[in-house]
């Protein structure tokens, strides 16, 4: 299913817009899928928001959900 992904910080340098993913129905499987498609993610410990809620445990992704990928950054 197509998933609408908004990437932030350094992740936005290689992921943007809607990505089509198969067999992804929760955030854990999304992470696994993304790291295969975008190996640069391997070294980034990013947070995920599903429909604008930062999640901390594996969370179901409903159709048309909006996913945000948030890497930490520390600039000041």
């Amino acid at each position: 299913m197509p998933i609408n992904i908004t990437a932030f910080g350094q992740i936005s340098e290689f992921i943007s817009g809607t990505i089509s993913v198969d067999k992804v129905n929760d955030t854990d499987s999304l992470r696994k899928h993304l790291v295969v498609q975008f190996p640069s993610l391997k070294d980034i410990n990013y947070a995920i928001a599903v429909d604008k809620k930062i999640i901390s445990v594996n969370t179901l992704i409903e159709e048309n959900a909006t996913i945000a990928l948030l890497p930490p950054f520390s600039g000041g």
Binding site: G9, Q10, D43, I44, N45, A47, I54, S56, L70, P71, P72, F73, S74, G75
Partner: peptide, 19 residues
Amino acid sequence: RDLFPHQPKENEVPNCSEA
């Protein structure tokens, strides 16, 4: 830490004045 539980490892993300 509710947002980012652990401090990133060195070189994981651009730090300080590099960017």
